[in-house]
Nucleic acid binder design. Structure first.
Lengths: 206, 206
DNA sequence: TCCAATGTAGAACGGTTGGTCTATTAAACG
DNA sequence: CGTTTAATAGACCAACCGTTCTACATTGGA
């Protein structure tokens, strides 16, 4: 009687089904029955691998976080060698995501909406995901030698959220490219990195 | 036996309770029982005034749309006489909203997330709300004599969505002021209106 | 005064939900 | 070989859900 955390065929199928259904239909909108059907797995198998529906939800959120952040980072790295272009590629990543048939917004925004209490475990997991995304973006800004990388990362993240939600409520709105254009303007008008000396830097005794 | 659409005490209490509960707990997260309790109204009264739970949901969405847009427009008009300042006041309106104790994000974003199918009646109502908000913002941009008011309105709306969602997932993040700062940059770097003549305008034979 | 409308209280319904229990099968491994 | 382990199928449960129904009280006009 071991409570293994190693993936078993049944456990794997369960998680995959949960991922898909929780994402597109929401958590409260997805019944255990529907997950079992999709996974083609017996009822008991679920409770052998997960404590409860809530346990399965937590596993779903963690897996989705890992995969989404992984995809994002892979995409921007593959997009360009230039560190500034990689930032803009964030919005191409979104654009690409939006075109996928099963796009239903951000799973974590949706979850935070479904569980509005900020103290709720699912809401907390959602907030943590957004923290991770923010720090990934901040890393991109640092690599691009932008001054105040965190501040710009926050702005870039806000633009991403806006694009995601706009596209969710009004599909095919082209929000990703809209956000990209704003991001361009933002970065072009941000303070220049020190290794690009400006005339201002050469002044003495200010 | 008349199916009046005039508000009755019971009908009013029901709608008010539904508004509050659907907003903070979501639609699937709110039971008929909870609404009856909150309204202090008998079970039968609900089905006398509304066809079903879905009917009550539709009434909630319509009322919320009316009230929210009304508040927004009142706020920006009261904020300033200057047409450009009114645009910036959009984000002060958000800031004010975010500080309210029961803030739970945008009811329409939440609803579109809960009913992800764009063909679902609730999703459609949510999309329509966003259309109305967009046209209100566009009107502000026209009043400010901005060139291409719709294009700028879309950008301003995207910033608003981003701020709302950011604040929802991560409360007290100051996202409204963040968005306001980006909006400032956006408008300052947008093409100037014709009634503010520039040197370019005074040239002859270009 | 009577009647219709609007309200209340609460039982009852069929369906669904998350979760448990039992019994059985099949492979993995000492 | 026998035992453990994960898997299966499906009955079962209590709770909850949206909805309907019955019975009764209040009230404001014709």
């Amino acid at each position: 009687m071991r409570t293994s955390s190693r993936p078993t065929p049944a456990k794997d199928a369960l998680l995959e089904a949960a991922c898909s259904l929780f994402y597109t239909n929401g958590i409260r909108g997805t019944s255990i029955e529907a997950i079992l059907d999709r996974a083609g797995v017996a009822r008991q198998s679920l409770y052998q691998h997960f404590e409860s529906k809530d346990g399965l939800v937590a596993a779903f959120l963690n897996l989705r976080d890992e995969r989404w952040c992984g995809s994002m980072n892979e995409f921007v790295v593959a997009a360009s060698d230039d560190s500034i272009e990689r930032i803009y590629a964030l919005y191409d990543f979104l654009d690409n995501w939006f075109r996928q048939a099963d796009f239903s917004g951000c799973a974590f925004i949706n979850t935070a909406a479904e569980y509005s209490n900020p103290a709720h475990p699912f809401h907390i997991l959602s907030a943590r995901h957004k923290e991770r995304v923010l720090s990934d973006i901040e890393a991109l800004c640092q690599a691009a030698h932008l001054t105040n990388p965190l501040a710009i990362a926050k702005q870039l993240a806000l633009l991403m959220e806006g694009a995601i939600v706009t596209e969710q409520v009004t599909p095919r709105s082209g929000a990703a490219q809209e956000a990209k254009a704003i991001a361009r303007m933002l970065i072009q008008h941000s303070p220049k990195p020190t290794h690009t000396p400006t005339r201002t830097n050469t002044r003495r005794n200010t």
